[in-house]
Amino acid sequence: MNTAVTTHYAEGAYDSRNIPKQPPQLHEQAGLLTRTLPWGSTEDIAPFSFIDDDSPEQLRELEEDERKKPGTRQRNEAIFHNACNHLCYRRAHASIWTQTWLYMWGVGRALFLIGVVLYLFMFMPIMIYMGSNTVGGISGVVDSLIISACWVFIPTLSCWLIGHIAVYRLPSHWILKPSEGPLWELNRQTGQVTVFARKPGQFAHLGIEGDFVRPFYEFDACVHILPSRQGLPQYSLHLVHRYQSVAIDFKPVTGLQSSEQACFALWDMWQNYMDISHPLPEIPTWEEFRPLDPTTSEHDRLTGRNPRYWRDMDKETYKNVIDELLIRIQKLDAFSRPNLMSQHVRNL
């Protein structure tokens, strides 16, 4: 390992080539309706949402904003307790104030569109059919349709418009307010996973004062299966500590997924992100930070990677890349892989 690598990463940084022996796992921490994923044999892949959230067009807009107002990203990270760079990925919830406006916009829009479909294709035909056989006739049907439309569309459309104006038209500092603090962090530089204490003594029952901090290799990824209201399975990924009842739920990052392959892709991405023997995952999110990470920088130099591969990508190429990604995700079969961690932990 060259000098730049050894000085950049901490001594405890996660390296899949050098995982220490660990105590045996004595108790199952994952809980019911979960399946534990094996370690290792990763692909350079990520969930669709992680790539789609940072399209080339969006990256160029962020780059232009940073050029006009240098330091914007760092200021926002400090205010909102989030981080997404070559050093760490830190997650925090939006404040209740911010969530209120976002929910008003998102839920109002969804209910309005659903209402339009149900109104046009179910309620209206039924009312017309029933009205044709009543004394009031078509005039009575029209009155009923107008009244019902007011009850259905005015509240939902109002929520949508008010939320849209708040999110997209008002100054961002009016709407975007910081939360009380971060929830968790995966740190590539140190190899540590932190679950932040949100209240005093949160981990006192574990004999820990303050935050829960443990090496990445002490956590296992578990696919949690949750049935929907229709009885269909939905999947989410949890990072569960092997020895203590502490876990990170990644639903706020990617949401519930309709297939477990999306969870496989997320687990591969986190392993590659934390593993200093691997370059940063090849997704738009981390492209601007690749030159700052020694392992990634050396990899890109040897492979001749275009440093603006994602940022200068045109729409048609981006669409093709996304289509190929979705095919690769559906082909993932994590459970068939050998478990790298079984060489270092007994009773896993």
Rank of each mutant, 00 (worst) to 15 (best):
M1P: 02
A10K: 10
S16E: 04
P23H: 10
F48M: 10
D53W: 06
Q58H: 11
R73S: 04
E77W: 14
A78S: 04
H81M: 08
N82L: 00
N85V: 08
L87Y: 05
M104A: 03
W105H: 15
G106N: 13
G108S: 06
L111A: 14
F112K: 01
L113S: 04
I114P: 01
V117H: 11
F123G: 14
P125D: 00
S132G: 14
G136Y: 13
G137H: 10
I154N: 15
H173N: 06
K177I: 01
P178L: 06
S179D: 12
R198F: 09
R198A: 08
I208R: 12
F212V: 12
P215I: 13
P227C: 02
S228C: 12
R229W: 07
S236L: 09
Y243A: 06
Q244N: 15
V246W: 05
G255N: 02
S259E: 07
Q261M: 02
W270P: 09
Q271K: 12
Q271T: 09
N272E: 05
I276A: 05
H278L: 14
P281Q: 08
I283D: 02
W286L: 12
T296W: 04
R305P: 07
R305G: 02
R308V: 11
Y309F: 02
E316R: 01
E316M: 05
E316Q: 02
T317L: 14
I327T: 01
V345Y: 08
V345W: 07
